[in-house]
């Protein structure tokens, strides 16, 4: 039924907070889990029945078993998992802080904005990872070049989104602030920052995704430890079970990080109330 012929009221007052509709007794979020599990089951089946070679595609149950094994392996935890999560957290913190601060600077200075915005606009057209040979020369192999590449990769999306947020104060609200003679500090804390929060939050959520991609991708090519390196190494040495277990762990880590950070950021986002 199209939205035009539907008898469902399409605009419900926000304060009513209706319960989500259910299909076959399940709410939409539950269906997401069902679909995810069904996809896993299909892969399991394809692998077990021999439709796909077990060497090409390991059954998810074996991935999970190997991943669980890795999680009890102290060497793997301290050598691969913890360094990666640490790097993602560091990248996210640096890119987030730097990004919001840079956006505020661009918002303050028309000159800076006009000088840099065209560059920021085409920034993601240039593949950051292509410059990794230069970074190897400059920083060697290890933590520093990973941080540099990942921060460079993640910071711009935070900047552009935060800038949109700072720009989102309606003209009349600024007039109201002037008419009420707010000090510069009051304007910052009572108008500008709260107004920017939803877009800053969106930028930070993307920033986390970019941080994760940046760290893991760079570990593939620039590192001797970390989850990314672990997968690359397993891949090069035909340890298929390890490779798939690593991929599964990456997915789980990224998922947990995202859900946690999104929930934390969602608490300060007034649009989600």
């Amino acid at each position: 039924m199209s939205i035009l012929t539907s008898t469902r009221p399409y605009r419900i007052p926000g304060y009513l907070r209706p319960r989500p509709a259910t299909v076959l007794g399940l709410a939409p979020p539950a269906w997401a889990a069902v679909l995810g599990l069904a996809a896993m089951a299909a892969v399991e089946l394809a692998s077990r029945t021999g439709v796909v070679s077990k060497f090409d595609l390991v059954p998810p149950s074996r991935m999970a078993a190997r991943a669980a094994g890795l999680l009890t392996d102290t060497g793997f935890l301290t050598g691969q998992l913890v360094p990666s999560i640490g790097l993602i957290a560091a990248t996210f913190a640096i890119a987030g802080g730097l990004g919001v601060a840079a956006a505020y600077l661009l918002w303050r200075s028309e000159w800076c904005r006009k000088a840099t915005l065209p560059l920021l606009g085409v920034y993601y057209a240039v593949p950051v990872f292509a410059v990794y040979p230069i970074l190897v020369v400059l920083f060697g192999v290890g933590t520093a070049p990973i941080l540099v590449v990942s921060v460079a990769f993640a910071v711009v999306v935070v900047i552009t989104n935060s800038l949109t947020g700072f720009d989102s104060v309606p003209a009349t609200v600024t007039k109201l602030a002037r008419a009420r003679r707010l000090t510069a500090r009051q304007y910052l804390t009572k108008v500008l920052l709260p107004a920017a929060v939803p877009d800053v939050v969106a930028g930070l959520r993307l920033g986390l995704v970019y941080s994760t991609i940046g760290v893991l991708a760079t570990e593939f090519i620039l590192s001797t430890k970390g989850l990314g390196h672990f997968i690359a190494d397993a891949y090069h040495t035909f340890r298929v079970d390890d490779m798939y277990a690593g991929i599964l762990l990456i997915c789980v880590v990224a998922l947990i990080l995202n859900v946690t950070v999104a929930a934390m950021l969602g608490r300060i986002d007034w649009r989600r109330r």
Binding site: T172, V173, K175, L176, L182, Q186, K190, V191, W270, R271
Partner: peptide, 27 residues
């Protein structure tokens, strides 16, 4: 002097009460 603008210039992140109190807060 108090100005009432064409659009309400309410602050969407504040409750109605806090919106009304905004001018007092500034002071």
């Amino acid at each position: 002097t108090a100005i009432v603008f064409q659009d309400s210039a309410t602050l969407p992140w504040r409750t109605v009460l806090d919106n009304v109190a905004f001018a007092l807060e500034a002071r």
